[in-house]
Every structure is written in C-alpha cells, then in structure tokens.
Design a protein around this nucleic acid. Structure first.
Lengths: 198, 198
DNA sequence: AATTAATGTAACATTCCTGTAACATTTTGC
DNA sequence: GCAAAATGTTACAGGAATGTTACATTAATT
C-alpha cells in the first residue's frame, strides 16, 4: 500500500508484487506517470482504477501498458474477479517461460521435458514431478514425508521408501554415476536435495 | 474444531494451529470479531468462510487481516487448494528466517548447511540438530538432560554421556583447537552452551 | 484381449552414523 | 594433596538409514 505516486514507484521496485492496483488520482505523481515508469523497468500486471468515465479514454489512448482498468465505484467482487482474470492471463504467459535450470539440467514444466546439456532425458510422470519439485527448491533438503506430500499428494498413503526407489530411478537416468550422485543427493537422516553447482 | 466464537478464540491460543478456517456465522462471537482478536495476538494464517457474497465486501473492507476467503458453497478441492496456497505463501516468508548466525558461524536450516566464514562444514544429522539448537539459543546453558530431550527427542532413552561424545565430534569439526573450544563451551556442573562473540 | 510401461512394495545388501564403554584428564571438595 | 566427581577422548560394534534389485500390480496402449 502506497499513499502517493513516488512511494508507489519505490514499493513496486522493492517488493516486486505479483500485481499492482493503481489509482489515477495520486499525490506527488499521478497514476499515468507511475504506470509508465513502472512499465519501463518491470513486467508486472497493472490494473488501473479510475474515478471518472472520462479517464477511461485516456487510459486506453495513452497506451500505458495497463492490463485492465476498473471504474469507481466498484464492488469488491468485481475487483477480485478482475484480479483473478488478469493473474490467470499473465500466468498463462509465464507458463511458457516456466523453465527451471540448475547447472547442466534444464527443465521445461509446460512441455514436461528435461534436458541435460543438449540431451533429452525421458522421464515418467513421477520422476518428472519429483525432479521438478527439487529443482524449484534447489539446495533445500526435504524429508521423505514432505516429498510424498508435495510430489505424490497430501492425501497419498504409502510407504516412505517409495521415495527412495523413485530417487534411484531418477539417478539412473540423470547421474553419470548413479552410485555417486552429483545432482540428486542424500542428506542422511534428513532426506534428499538437489545440489546446486558450486 | 470449535463450535462457537469464544471456543474458537480459546482453542486458537491453546493449540497454536498452523492455519485457521474461520466461518463468519458463529454463535456467541462472530467470525469478524474472532479474526480481529486473534490477529491482535497471533500471526497465524486465517481463511474466512462466507455464506453470502455480500459478506465478502465486509471481509475486505474491514481489513481484518484475513489471508484469504472462500464463499460457500465450495468444493473440497477448492478449499484444499486455498489452504495449500496460503501455507506455501506464509512458509516462504519463514524461509529467510531459517538462517541463524553467531559470529563466524552461519547455519541454514532449510539447506541443512553450516558455514564457518566461507568454508562449509559437513555435519551429520545429530551434529547438525545439536548445533542448530544451541545456535538458536546462543548463550544459554543446557543440561545434558535438556539436550537429550530437545535434540534427541523427549522419548529418547539412553546414556547422558552420549551428549558429551556428540559435542566432542562437533568440536572436532568446528573449533580451531577442539581442546580449547571458543564456540561450543562447557559450563562445568551444568552443561553446554554456544558462546556468543564478545 | 494381449502387451507394454509405470509404479509401489518387499526383500536383501551396504554404508556409515552413533551410542556405549573404557580409559584419560581436569576440576572440585575436604 | 588426595579421593571423588565431572568432563574429555578414543575405539568399536550394532544397527538404523539408505542403496539396490526383483517382482507384483495397476494403468496405458496396441
């Protein structure tokens, strides 16, 4: 929450929010200028709030790069709906760029593909989900319980050792020497983690 | 599970749950007030349940500090998704505070790593758990009994001297001169503590 | 319906962590 | 200064944790 245009700019760059609701009528620096200056540096969704219908034309005409606009007075329901819709739209675009990397490994969530260097590695669903989760949280150690919850599903019921076997199969495909893994490593007594390149 | 607002308050403070699902329509004390009073004392994620769309505005307008809201009727899938998303968000914030430092020592709980300056120190599970506990309570002296309870587990049964040996192994790895420790120190007749830099 | 692939379970193998015990050293109390 | 208590130190065996493989079962495909 910012109470004037300059604070809005500062907060936007500092906090890197997922989405910005931007009023036009602001002290110090109006919404038009704030929007323009944010757009110069960031690719964050912006929804503009206008008090007067007359301003709508201006929002559209100036090609500010706002993703949507809402005219006052608006209901909470309406603004929430706009926010959701905007996030859904922008997430879609993100999906294509949902690529995780760690050293030689490159993972494309959308296409469900994993590459090691230029070579594609064929993975099954479980294997892919597991490596994707570890990659997304590279460096962090996860217990078998946590992995079952996150990868298999919170309501999955089964043996903890299932994780071990899936890890083994992953190593078979990913590691040069599955006996001495350099990607999917074990922290004895704790669980597994994906080692980041040093 | 609480069946009225006052019970909800009592339970929240007693049980310290990870997350609260809070209906608005409650006997004795409604959800708005429960939420407000919990927020005054605790920083627990709260998801509000509303029967009427009209209440949504109120939830948002009152700035109760609820983390999310769901309108009835909702599917199990939806509420689970909201819970997960909320927990993920709040956990993320925890991540950064998972790092403990004391002088040259830097410990990362999530990664289960300990650094002394820029050099990483390889620790076993017990060693890590022990130093993490001492670091989190730097300066405070703990008896062998207390350490067994906190680090080994309240239900652990074994020799008190086990602590000594683990401390010895830790010193071997952490101290420049394990014979004259400057980090993990002994308070004769009492126990061990981690000395804070002077 | 037959075949193939995916995945969980179980059983066996291996590693290396960790507690115990035994002895050494330091400190305390008298 | 001596005995006793507390702590330091070391070695080693047992076992818990993990690795590995095989097989059964389920799901997907032909």
């Amino acid at each position: 929450m910012a109470y004037n245009g300059e604070e809005a700019l500062r907060l936007a760059f500092e906090e890197k929010p997922d989405l910005i609701l931007l009023d036009i009528m602001l002290p110090l620096l109006d919404g038009f200028n704030v929007c323009k200056r944010i757009r110069e540096k960031m690719d964050v969704p912006i929804i503009m709030l206008t008090a007067k219908e007359a301003e709508v034309d201006k929002v559209l005409g100036l090609e500010l790069g706002a993703d949507d606009y809402v005219t006052k007075p608006f209901s909470a329901r309406e603004i929430i709906a706009r926010i959701k819709a905007t996030l859904r739209r922008t997430k879609m675009q993100d999906r294509e760029s949902e690529i995780l990397t760690c050293g030689e490994l490159v993972l494309d969530r959308g296409r469900m593909e994993l590459f090691k260097g230029s070579a594609q590695i064929e993975l099954t669903y479980r294997e892919f989900t597991l490596v994707a989760f570890l990659l997304q949280n590279a460096g962090y150690v996860f217990s078998r319980e946590k992995l079952l919850e996150e990868v298999w599903g919170y309501d999955y019921i089964g043996d903890l050792r299932t994780v071990d076997v899936t890890v083994r199969r992953l190593r078979e495909k990913i590691e040069d020497d599955p006996g001495n893994p350099i990607y999917i490593c074990t922290r004895r007594g704790a669980g597994y983690y994906l080692r980041r390149p040093s």
